[in-house]
């Protein structure tokens, strides 16, 4: 089977507070440490597990992003992915959900995939919309929030996370599958993985390779516009209050203010 996994390089969510540049209205990506989205690490683990259990399958990681995103793809290769594709083009900067999904779908279409893995959502944007949009552009079914996936013949069966448990959902292949974060243990690369990652096939595509018009993607194609960027209510730096009998009320007020009740 030809399996694909869509991945993304993001500012390290654990150490970097995600910031927007008021001038460009885009995510600040300079001067911060960039990593493969931790959510994608578990998605890759799920894809590798499936590839290995199916046998005779190839797993390709695909990403859209600036040149620096090859580092994230190298990490995916080190983890055990067989091949990587990076779609990089200046015209892609500022792409929204649809632009991103359109681009990835165009690249995936050339490959005739059997199964496309995505994370449920990225750890920086959290929209969770790209996988569904890719599925729509490719005309494929989508199996979302999977915490377990099995392929049985020409069908995929997943356990789909719900509020109270899970649903067993099946669909014909090819399909897009999104993996619920934390469902799989991320793979820490072996030395062999790290060394062989340098030699595995790595291709780079531009917009013209995909036959996409620049007006459909990037900032030009965006269907949303940022009007302004403001400062959030500064996270009140540790308000410390001595209990004078009204602590319960103070806490309850706090919870209510933040819609936590």
């Amino acid at each position: 089977m030809k399996i694909f996994v869509c991945v993304k390089q993001i500012p390290d969510p654990n150490t970097v507070e995600s910031k927007l540049d008021p001038a460009t209205k885009r995510l600040v990506r300079t001067g911060v440490s960039l990593v493969l989205d931790p959510g994608d690490e578990t998605t890759i683990a799920a894809a590798i597990k499936l590839r290995d259990s199916l046998g005779n399958s190839e797993l390709t990681a695909i990403s859209m992003g600036p040149a620096s995103a090859q580092e994230a793809l190298r990490r995916a290769l080190a983890m055990g992915v067989d091949r990587a594709i990076l779609i990089s083009d200046p015209a892609l900067a500022g792409s929204d959900v649809l632009g991103t999904a359109r681009t990835l779908a165009a690249a995936l279409k050339r490959e005739n995939p059997d199964l496309i893995f995505c994370s449920t959502e990225s750890t920086d944007g959290y929209t969770g919309m790209v996988p569904g949009a890719i599925a729509e552009f490719l005309g494929l079914p989508q199996l979302t929030f999977a915490r377990e996936i099995n392929v049985e013949g020409t069908k995929a069966v997943i356990k789909r996370v719900t509020q109270t448990g899970y649903e067993v959902v099946e669909s014909p292949l090819p399909a897009v599958v999104t993996i619920a974060s934390g469902s799989f243990e991320a793979i820490y690369p072996t030395m062999k993985g790290i060394m062989s990652a340098r030699k595995k096939p790595f291709s780079q595509l531009s917009l013209s390779d995909l036959g996409l018009d620049p007006s459909q993607v990037g900032e030009a194609g965006a269907r949303e516009q940022v009007l302004s960027i403001g400062k959030a209510e500064a996270r009140a730096a540790g308000q410390i209050i001595k209990d004078e009998g009204n602590a319960a009320e103070i806490i309850a007020d706090f919870l209510q203010r933040h819609q936590l009740l």
Partner: peptide
């Protein structure tokens, strides 16, 4: 083998990244 107690993964990642 990349076979170690799972809680160590974040230790390795953190040392390397941070």
């Amino acid at each position: 083998e990349s076979d170690f107690p799972p809680e160590v993964t974040s230790l390795f990642n953190n040392i390397e990244r941070n």
